[in-house]
Design a protein around this nucleic acid. Structure first.
Lengths: 354, 354
DNA sequence: GCTAGTCTCTGTATCGATACAGACTGGATC
DNA sequence: GATCCAGTCTGTATCGATACAGAGACTAGC
């Protein structure tokens, strides 16, 4: 067994407190004694104060949690998530804090335990859809958190960093509408729980539960409503998850229709890239000319020439961590809206005349 | 203040132990009483057992640490590291364990504290160069760990997952040598501490401290020694870090020489991509025909047509975590060598006749 | 020579739980 | 009626540290 602080104290012949001070408050004892204590500790192989015991007593841990809706392994597949994590990591690093990644993938009871047992001082909630319970657990634990998706039930003092999803989505949709597109599909993932992949009829956009997805779809709809295309005229398509494969599978049938949409607006770059994959797979002859847009502007988007909306991923992570690690005194400053920008590339063009 | 377990016990009129059992060992009390306890807890807003106190008593935490040499933010920039993390994450997830990312970037005293204070049950050491002290801290704490870089001072029971760096490097170098290349540059990062970017003279490959870098450079040298090109005839080039920018900067001068190398063997794909960047930047007229190879086979390598050595990144992470989470009884099984494969693409070709 | 003030160091309470031995039920067994 | 046992529950020790009040020793000032 590893020696404890008590053992060191006994070896030197001082009290536990003094050994503790030797490590944590060097100014509280003479340099000579401190040296003797550290020497004895070295000799005994004492590895320094036990982190768990220390944080029990001190009341904080020294690490922040990042909560994911999706699987941990998936988080690393999504380039936007990776950039976000990089931002959180950079800020955490500056504060001398580590980051604990907490996935919510498994069945609720397990996932709940993970949130309950996470040894952290607070959470960055990357993307929580229906998992409202997770936020409740965090609140019950009395831990601070920063969320990145606007939620209806957010308290006024709740810290948040994100973008105006609806306005951003509207901007890219307006660009597409301006190019003359009227037969348009909107592609999103997990639009409703347990819906199959492919086209989906929804009487109103407000039925979409996930706040981010809802905001983006609503923004798309806004822009088209302005040119006289209303919700019922838009084709809503569901993908099973946020991956290229899922997106390609979701739109496959659509593209085979006699009159395929002339534009597909995707809720994320990853989905958009999947649509481009699906198009690229077709022989040039049967490849309908479809404009495609994404959302996020991940690094791959530039290479693929994807028209999209840029949002600062790393910045988002950085600010999330900073709002958590040193909260602004002013509640209003705890609510950060980041700028977005329409990035027009080659994947969108005017409607082909038929 | 949040209520404690004691408060719940008092409210129900039972002992602390019984409340504890209600949460952690439901079979130890009647269902009825358990229900009463949980009800009272809900009513009081008791969020369940405090994770810190629980892990102090139980002696384990339920999360594993991943130790990085480089900055945390950088870890997410390196595609190989990201894949590795994805693998660790997948395995951790299966075990119901979270992962704590611990960077070693800052000055040693701070970084040391980070390792000492990390609330984890063990470490995956992703890539520790000169930071031998970190391994000592881990050992002192009595924590298990798995390393991914072969080290000279590794004990026989030390768990390890990695590849035969030297043989793998040799295979790609043999391919290049077979194409006829004899004027060759080897590009690596942080070859020696505090060396500037650019060409560097080293009397022998054994002077390179970092085990991975050493293994790869030695492998390159092996293959060329076989065709009569010895160490002194190879140009060693240092990059400041493992990034495309650093690689491009490191080789810039080299490519401007009157007789530039006909091939550059890089110690990683990221570096190799940087060399390709540097070449692509030049006007076609002054662009020397240089074969370039990488190492790792990250996703970007395929797109860039980079000849490289494939090593299973995610697998490596997955196995590292698994060796940590359920250690094989057999010590030999704790030492895993993964297969590698030479992947020939368009970035290498025969020496141009001058 | 006495009081005040500063430096060190000690002792005890505390953080919030879990482990374990043992005590109390009530019913079955002999 | 005594014994045994399984099923529940309690009490106390323990995990490994830190916080805080306060005790001695020592210096300085008057």
């Amino acid at each position: 067994m590893k020696p404890t602080l008590q053992a060191v104290a006994d070896a030197v012949g001082v009290s536990r407190s003094t050994v503790s001070n030797a490590y944590s408050r060097p100014d509280q004892l003479s340099a000579a004694l401190r040296e003797r204590i550290l020497d004895a500790a070295r000799q005994l192989g004492y590895p320094g104060p036990n982190p768990t015991a220390r944080s029990l007593r001190r009341g904080f841990v020294g690490s922040i949690g990042v909560l994911f809706t999706s699987q941990l392994s998936y988080a690393f597949t999504d380039p936007f998530a990776v950039r976000f994590l990089a931002g959180v990591g950079a800020a955490a690093e500056r504060h001398g804090t580590s980051m604990l990644l907490v996935p919510l993938s498994r069945a609720e009871p397990d996932a709940r335990r993970a949130v309950e047992n996470a040894a952290v001082d607070g959470f960055c909630v990357y993307c929580v859809a229906d998992e409202g319970w997770a936020l409740e657990v965090i609140r019950d634990r009395g831990l601070p958190f920063v969320s990145t998706a606007a939620r209806d039930d957010a308290g006024p003092d709740e810290r948040f960093v994100g973008i105006d999803e609806r306005a951003a989505a509207r901007s890219v949709a307006a660009h597409v509408a301006g190019l003359g597109h009227r037969r348009v599909a909107l592609l999103a993932h997990s639009v409703l729980p347990d819906v199959p992949a492919g086209p989906l009829t929804l009487s109103a956009v407000d039925q979409v539960p996930h706040p981010t997805t809802h905001g983006r779809l609503a923004g798309f709809a806004d822009a088209f409503a302005e040119v006289g295309v209303d919700w019922a005229d838009l084709t809503l398509v569901n993908a099973l998850d946020n991956s290229r494969q899922a997106a390609a599978a979701a739109v496959a049938g659509l593209l085979d229709r006699p009159a395929p949409p002339t534009a597909v607006l995707a809720g994320s770059d990853v989905l958009a890239l999947g649509v481009l994959d699906a198009l690229a797979e077709r022989p040039a002859g049967s490849r309908p000319p479809v404009s495609v847009t994404g959302f996020d502007d991940v690094p791959e988007a530039a290479a693929a020439g994807l028209t999209t909306v840029r949002q600062p991923a790393e910045e988002k992570g950085r600010i999330a961590a900073e709002l958590l690690l040193d909260p602004p005194a002013d509640a209003a400053a705890g609510h950060v809206l980041l700028p977005t920008a329409l990035v027009v590339r080659a994947s969108t063009g005017p409607v082909p005349r038929s």
